[in-house]
Amino acid sequence: MLEVRDLHVAYGEVRVLHGVSLTVQRGELVAVIGANGAGKTTMMKSILGLVTPDAGDIRWNGQSLMRVPPWARAAAGIGYVPEGRRVFPGLTVEQNLRMGAYPVRNPREVQAGIDEVYALFPRLAERRRQRAGTLSGGEQQMLAIGRALMNRPRLLLIDEVSMGLMPIMVQRAFDIVKSLHEQGMTILLVEQNARQALAVADRGYVLELGRIVLAGTAAQLQSDPRVQAAYLGGGSGGFHDGRPRA
């Protein structure tokens, strides 16, 4: 469904991704785990078209997305839950949801979408007329997910779903991701919280300093000693013994 091939991205002189490749099949929940600065968000932004790669290809159902602008990618069915929630703070909850349905715009479908999101997150229904900026962190995360669902995406990109949430909400956020997956949604999850991410994912990739250093099923990664050491809290060091790669 989604295929990223040998993606190179640099911000000016600073090279962030050095040839990242990954695939997401229909119905899968794929997690990309990695530390801060590994290039996770840059990879997401490249898939969305918010960052222009220097080399490589991104294919969506066999078609290259390289020359497709971000809004057209959204309309083609790639939904995005941004890092740090990034809801439209000055708009109400309901306006935020409407905005997510912009590529749809058919009033009946939009209303149906809003009702579905409210059924999924009753808290949002209670706060429908409240400005999104005044919601709690967990509620904003629900809203960000709900907004992405409004466009009925075929693939949902979720960037750091647990970032900045209270511990109790972190669990809740992953439960939401898991239940979306169980309902058949294809999801690409990018996450620092490797333990939680691998617990819900089918497959995973480990991104380190702009390279995929390991790939496998979630179970394989969970039992890999290097992953355990670096990301699952078993000791220090990583793939390169803590030394930065040249």
Binding site: L48, L50, A74, Y80, P89, Y102, R147
Partner: peptide, 25 residues
């Protein structure tokens, strides 16, 4: 209108608006 909502989302967060499918240009 949708046009107005699109303008407001553009004002609030341009990147998020684009990711939501809005042709900000």
């Amino acid at each position: 209108s949708w046009f107005g909502l699109a303008l407001e989302s553009l004002r609030e967060d341009e990147a998020a608006a684009e990711a939501a499918g809005i042709d900000t240009r």
